[in-house]
Design a protein around this nucleic acid. Structure first.
Length: 289
DNA sequence: TCCCAGGGTGTGG
DNA sequence: CCACACCATGGG
């Protein structure tokens, strides 16, 4: 018997999730910069997270996700009502965030693996998205496990044990550049238990951030991204070059101090900061305004 | 060729 | 506390 969640019109049956497509835009959700392991194929999408793959497509007014339904129902955050979040952001009265949420109302914040998000966003520093994706994909192909689903071959994200055992030269060969020592150090810290990501989940965000900042190669922005995308907490506002431009161009901002810019937006959007950041980041990078 | 990319660390003032 | 050099690498 299919499971039916009446309020959200969520239906799960035989490894297939059906969901109203108006509240889930695959393209925007995947390409807005929060995640790197996905590919657009024809009119569908393949997404890989940890050791799992799903296939996404539309069927009329329904969004369809095929794969491990329990895993991907959580991954796509399907039990959260985003219309409430969008209303809250729009009620703050800033023109650009209202425009961004209206244009990209199908963006959802994925519930990603903490470890995978941490490694991925260390790689992201001072880097561009196509290169980040390519570097991560090469890492998975070299160190992950080969798998296949729906006739598509893919590689799982490497275990932390496997990653901690490689040397810097190997990572540099994959395009890490100077980030190789950061990623190795982080993987080894997790492996040795110096950083226990699941245990850190019990800490409030400010204490969690302190712990993340103790890892060499994780600064303010990367820590905020890990907290938002890995720990799924929205009381942070990551500031990168695009947000800095946005702050200056669209919010009459003067400061170039990224910590102050982040504080400005957190005081504006409060517990919805992370969501607001993602809509604004995507809109700015897309040239919406 | 130069600039930029979902920045961070280390050093000198 | 602040400013700034430096860090690899490839896409545009």
């Amino acid at each position: 018997m299919p499971f039916v969640n009446a309020f959200f019109s969520l239906r799960i049956e035989d490894c297939m999730i059906r969901f109203p497509n108006k509240s889930l835009n695959f393209f925007d959700t995947l390409s807005c910069g929060q995640v790197f392991r996905y590919e657009v194929v024809g009119d569908g999408f393949f997404v890989v997270s940890e050791d799992k793959l799903c296939r996404c497509r539309y069927d009329g007014d329904e969004a369809i996700i095929e794969g491990d339904d329990k895993y991907f129902e959580n991954y796509f955050d399907l039990s959260t009502d985003y219309s409430r979040i969008i209303s809250a952001i729009q009620s703050r009265g800033f023109e650009k965030s209202s425009l961004a949420t209206a244009a990209y109302s199908g963006v959802r914040i994925l519930r990603q693996s903490k470890y995978e998000a941490l490694i991925s966003f260390i790689i992201s520093q001072n880097n561009n998205i196509p290169r980040i994706r390519s570097t991560i994909e090469k890492t998975c192909d070299l160190l992950g496990e080969k798998k296949e689903l729906f006739g598509r071959e893919y590689s799982s994200f490497p275990t932390v044990e496997k990653l901690a055992l490689v040397d810097e030269k190997t990572l540099k060969g994959l395009g890490y550049g100077y980030r190789s020592e950061y990623v190795l150090g982080a993987a080894r810290a997790i492996c040795e238990g110096k950083i226990d990501l699941e245990r850190l989940d019990s800490l409030p965000s400010d204490r969690l951030k302190e712990e993340l900042l103790s890892v060499k190669g994780i600064g303010n922005k990367v820590a905020d991204c890990v907290i938002l995308f890995g720990f799924h907490r929205s009381d942070v506002f990551p500031v990168d070059t695009w947000i800095e431009k946005l702050y200056r161009d669209d919010f009459n901002g003067k400061s170039t101090d990224r910590k102050k810019i982040s504080e400005f937006f957190v005081s504006a959007f409060g517990e919805y900061s992370g969501y607001a950041q993602q809509y604004l980041f995507y809109a700015k990078r897309n040239g919406l305004f």
